[in-house]
Amino acid sequence: MTAQTIDAPTGTATTGVIELQNVTRWYGNVVAVNDITMSLGPGVTGLLGPNGAGKTTVLHMMAGFLAPSRGTLTIDGKPTWRNPSVYRDLGLVTEREAVHGFLTAGQFVLACAKMQKLPDPAGAARRALELVEMTDAADRRIETFSKGMRQRTRVAAALVHEPRVLLLDEPFNGMDPRQRMHMMELLHSLGDRGHTILFSSHILEEVEQVAGLVQVIVAGRLAASGDYRRIRRLMTNRPHVFAVRSSDDRKLAVALIAEKSVSGIEVEATGLTVRAADYGSFTRALPRIALDQGIRLHQLVPSDESLESVFSYLLEA
């Protein structure tokens, strides 16, 4: 994959700093975002949290599409609510994949460049499409695109004016592994060039591969904040529980208990509940053991894998 270039944001005084001061947002009686204070600068930051934690609400407030009920939210010192001028330096890729499908990718990105009133809209559009590797498909109508191609087109549109701040809501959803990789590289390189990139995700592995910094949101609150390695360590070292069903549960239980990564097994009528001390070695060992014993595995479900439980563990740690 060739390295693409995008000009580093110009200007030194303003650097794409997103500031949240005690930001709270409620809908009626429901508090969606609760007293969040954070400051984000250049580089890639992951906004991690289970579905419904308030990630989208936070992103929409940052992008000026929702007013904070309380607190202040600024980008480079300017409020984003009711202030369209912030979009000169802000790009947003929403989770909803709606695009003007009757336009071609080229027309769409060019229209965005024109609405940004760029001096050379055609050049900017071409560069943005190159950046997301959509040049070959630029003359096709967007409604004929796959989900991943639409996503890249929308990223190109959000990047066409080379904003200092780029917000992406679940950008990896629906992408195949190659597209995902490419998107991760793109975000990486943008972050390295001094852009402030914030993307939301509910999958730790995604965040881990791109972001140096992680902001974890659980139930509307900022639960953890900092280097992903620390958070990752906390997450992998915690005990895991799996529900396993196989052709011979008892035989499997006997074989598993000899395995070092297994710390406990319960045999029930519906199957086995296995407690593993180490996620990685257990999931690697299980298929090997089953194969050795000639046991057919019917089901392997991590029973506490909801991010909610991961995060509640994090909070206790």
């Binding site: 992008a63 599409f65 369209p84 001028s85 912030v86 979009y87 000169r88 802000l90 790009g91 947003l92 929403t94 909803r96 709606a98 695009v99 003007h100 769409f108 965005c112 609405m115 940004q116 009133k117 929308r154 549109a157 959000a158």
Partner: peptide
């Protein structure tokens, strides 16, 4: 309805 308005609103255009 279909959400495409966002692409127009995220531009520094006077409303």
């Amino acid at each position: 309805d279909d959400g495409t308005l966002v692409h127009i609103l995220t531009k520094p255009l006077p409303r």
